[in-house]
């Protein structure tokens, strides 16, 4: 088993763990964490496949770089929605 294949397998397992978290955990913040774990798994499969050849393939590297930044943007968007929902819930409780 080569190094690339090892990391690809770990990436698939990470994706599975994240997927289970997204589906099974009710807590919103942990759902967001689970989606991020899913994303890391996908990135790992990408990078592992990129390094499986003789020379490293830089196109997946660039795509993963883009993906990391978009992932943090999406996470921040989800978190701001969580903060907003929380504020509204508290307001309803106060009322």
């Amino acid at each position: 088993m080569t190094q690339a294949m090892l990391y690809a397998v770990f990436g698939i397992v990470l994706f599975g763990v994240g997927l289970f978290g997204v589906l099974a955990i009710a807590h919103v913040m942990k759902k967001i964490l689970a989606i991020n774990i899913c994303g890391v798994g996908v990135f790992m499969v990408f990078i592992a496949n990129a390094s499986s050849g003789v020379a490293a393939d830089f196109v997946p590297h660039a795509m993963v770089l883009t993906g990391i930044v978009v992932a943090v943007a999406g996470t921040a968007m989800a978190l701001s929605l969580v903060v907003r929902i929380n504020a509204l819930e508290q307001q309803e409780e106060d009322a």
Binding site: T2, A8, V9, A50, S52, G53, D57
Partner: peptide, 18 residues
């Protein structure tokens, strides 16, 4: 994982292109 092992290392035409 089985698909990954069966598929083997992918062809990388982009390496030479880059």
């Amino acid at each position: 994982i089985k698909a990954l092992i069966d598929f083997g290392p992918a062809e990388q035409p982009l390496v030479a292109l880059v």
